[in-house]
Simulated assay, not measured.
Amino acid sequence: MTNGSASGSPAPTDGSRASGAVLDLLGLLAYAELVAFFRLTDDAELAPTLVDKGELAGLAATEYGHYRMLRDRLRELGADPEEAMRPFVAPLDAWHARTEPQDWLESLVKAYVGDGIAGDFYRQVAELTDAQTRDLVHGVLSEAGRAEFVAAKVRAAVADDPKLAGRLALWARRLVGEALSQAQRVATERPELAALLAAEDETDSHSDLASVSRVFARITDAHAARVKAMGLSA
């Protein structure tokens, strides 16, 4: 394989590859949003107050709305949403199985850090797709409401019990490692998606996966900011 064009250029000139990559991106994100809906619903049951339960229920409803938008876009493109999502069931389910929270606070950190890293990955891929796909992805991945809610809750918990900071910081680092591991798996198994992501890397290379690795390294830079926002140390 060879790299695509540099960052800021249009989608790859190979139309079939671009189409396959777009369907992969939308299928991956659709399944991620569907799982996020179920996970936030479960997290709401762990919430300590009725207000917290209501906040998480609202976030879960938003995730389901995003799933429907992605599902409808796949249908507009002539794709079967279930077929588009199927290749990503195993890696995403593996990510969630390996990062099962043990309590309410761990579930919050996972919602913020884990989903944030995944969102950075989706945005990087979307940058070299068509304008409609790019706008849809950025809209679906808007995390302002969730980020503010989670960061505030974790900061308050750490302020009440500073000993929590170390445990939650370690948990955050584990989430990042597991997220990047599964993202590497997806890139390996879906070469069209990897080729599109590699087009974001301006470094000349003969390997899409090498370029993808460099992109992942850049994605981790946002991790420190998210950890700091929660009152933890990277």
Rank of each mutant, 00 (worst) to 15 (best):
F37T: 15
F38E: 14
L40Y: 11
L40K: 11
A44D: 09
E45L: 15
L46Y: 01
L46N: 04
A47V: 03
P48Y: 08
P48K: 09
V51R: 15
V51L: 15
G54P: 10
G54H: 12
G54D: 14
L56C: 09
A57L: 09
A57N: 04
G58V: 00
L59Q: 13
A60I: 05
A61C: 12
T62Q: 13
E63Q: 08
E63Y: 00
Y64Q: 11
Y64C: 05
Y67D: 03
Y67K: 01
R68N: 02
M69N: 02
R71Y: 11
R71L: 03
L74R: 01
L74E: 10
L74A: 12
E76C: 11
E76L: 14
L77G: 11
G78Y: 05
D80P: 02
D80F: 08
D80H: 01
D80I: 04
P81Y: 09
P81C: 10
E82Y: 08
E83T: 15
A84G: 10
M85T: 06
R86N: 03
P87H: 06
P87S: 07
V89E: 12
V89H: 11
V89F: 11
V89G: 10
V89C: 09
V89L: 13
A90K: 15
A90V: 15
P91R: 06
P91Y: 09
L92I: 09
D93R: 15
A94P: 03
W95P: 03
W95D: 00
W95V: 07
W95T: 05
H96Q: 14
H96V: 13
H96R: 14
H96P: 01
A97S: 13
R98G: 06
R98I: 01
T99W: 00
T99F: 08
P101N: 04
Q102P: 04
W104E: 11
L105G: 00
L105C: 04
E106M: 07
E106D: 06
S107Q: 10
S107M: 11
S107W: 04
S107D: 13
L108V: 03
L108Q: 00
V109S: 07
V109G: 03
V109P: 01
V109M: 04
V109Q: 02
K110M: 12
K110V: 00
A111W: 01
V113W: 00
G114A: 06
G114W: 00
G114V: 02
D115W: 04
G116A: 09
G116E: 04
I117H: 03
A118P: 01
A118L: 15
A118V: 08
G119W: 02
G119R: 08
D120S: 13
F121E: 00
F121S: 05
Y122A: 02
Y122Q: 01
Q124R: 12
Q124K: 08
V125S: 10
V125C: 15
L128F: 01
D130Q: 10
D130P: 04
D130I: 05
A131Y: 10
Q132I: 02
Q132K: 12
T133N: 07
T133E: 01
T133Q: 05
D135M: 12
L136M: 00
H138Q: 09
G139P: 07
V140S: 02
L141M: 06
L141I: 00
S142H: 15
E143W: 06
